Amino acid sequence: MSVRQGLLALLAQQPMYGAQLRSEFEARTGGTWPLNVGQVYTTLARLERDGLVEEVGADDEGRISYRLTRTGRAEVAQWWLSPVDRETTPRDELVIKLALAVTVEGVDVHRVVQTQRTATLRHLQDLTRLKQRATTHHESGDGGDGNVDLAWLLVLENLIYSAEAEVRWLDHVEARLVREASRPRRQARTVPTTDDEGPGTVGGPSAPHHTIATTPRGAQ
């Protein structure tokens, strides 16, 4: 989620100052994507520069609040109705690690996969316990904001689905490694050429040779 768009969405409700925006952002996402105040104020400065927010004065403690401009409200409205852009592929450290592991000699790729699976399963168990507690709290209606509870549940469920997908992908990676290990390796064979030879001659003692990589039948 873009911090820029998240702050605009919060300001669509009411004017807020930087620390308040950070607190609201983290409360509504369960602290999954923590922000620091400096990041919030840097983003607010850019939003003000772009004409999307404006200052509305300081409170008794000198904290400056911001509100959306008309342009800012239009951008928030457009954001709600626009799909999230998936054209830019995010850098996933696990994918990068495994892609490199299979190309670097001396790396025990199976151990890398198994270690990650153990960690991901443990993370999945923690998320499941959090969801159980959050669901109980939400359904009991015992204090708090029901919409904030629902928001936290949605975030947790997204994280659970992602963890489950990661475990399935790791299972697939391990199965792929097993299949790859059983494949015949590509071998090189030397074949003569007819360069500089007369008609009908198929390579002589002085004919140059070229190495051609071949794949045994059935290896594809």
Rank of each mutant, 00 (worst) to 15 (best):
residue 1 M to C: 05
residue 2 S to V: 05
residue 3 V to K: 04
residue 3 V to A: 14
residue 4 R to D: 09
residue 5 Q to S: 13
residue 7 L to Q: 07
residue 7 L to A: 13
residue 8 L to Y: 05
residue 9 A to C: 03
residue 11 L to W: 01
residue 13 Q to L: 14
residue 15 P to E: 03
residue 15 P to R: 02
residue 16 M to Q: 13
residue 16 M to C: 13
residue 18 G to S: 08
residue 19 A to W: 11
residue 20 Q to F: 00
residue 23 S to A: 13
residue 29 T to M: 09
residue 30 G to N: 05
residue 30 G to P: 00
residue 34 P to Y: 11
residue 40 V to S: 10
residue 41 Y to R: 14
residue 44 L to T: 08
residue 45 A to V: 14
residue 46 R to H: 09
residue 46 R to T: 12
residue 58 A to T: 15
residue 62 G to W: 03
residue 65 S to N: 00
residue 65 S to W: 06
residue 65 S to H: 09
residue 74 A to I: 07
residue 77 A to I: 07
residue 79 W to M: 09
residue 80 W to P: 00
residue 81 L to H: 06
residue 86 R to Q: 11
residue 91 R to T: 03
residue 93 E to W: 13
residue 102 V to Y: 02
residue 104 V to Y: 01
residue 105 E to T: 08
residue 105 E to R: 01
residue 114 Q to H: 14
residue 114 Q to G: 10
residue 114 Q to F: 12
residue 116 Q to Y: 04
residue 116 Q to C: 01
residue 118 T to D: 01
residue 118 T to P: 00
residue 118 T to L: 03
residue 119 A to K: 06
residue 120 T to E: 00
residue 124 L to T: 02
residue 127 L to K: 06
residue 128 T to N: 06
residue 134 A to S: 10
residue 135 T to F: 13
residue 135 T to I: 09
residue 137 H to F: 07
residue 137 H to T: 09
residue 139 E to H: 11
residue 140 S to E: 04
residue 144 G to E: 03
residue 150 L to N: 12
residue 163 A to N: 01
residue 166 E to H: 03
residue 167 V to M: 04
residue 167 V to H: 02
residue 168 R to K: 07
residue 173 V to L: 01
residue 177 L to C: 02
residue 177 L to F: 06
residue 178 V to F: 06
residue 180 E to Y: 14
residue 184 P to L: 04
residue 185 R to M: 12
residue 185 R to V: 10
residue 187 Q to K: 14
residue 188 A to D: 05
residue 190 T to G: 09
residue 190 T to V: 15
residue 191 V to N: 00
residue 191 V to P: 00
residue 191 V to A: 07
residue 193 T to P: 00
residue 194 T to K: 08
residue 195 D to K: 14
residue 199 P to I: 09
residue 200 G to A: 13
residue 202 V to T: 09
residue 205 P to E: 15
residue 206 S to P: 01
residue 208 P to T: 05
residue 211 T to N: 15
residue 213 A to Y: 07
residue 214 T to E: 09
residue 216 P to S: 04
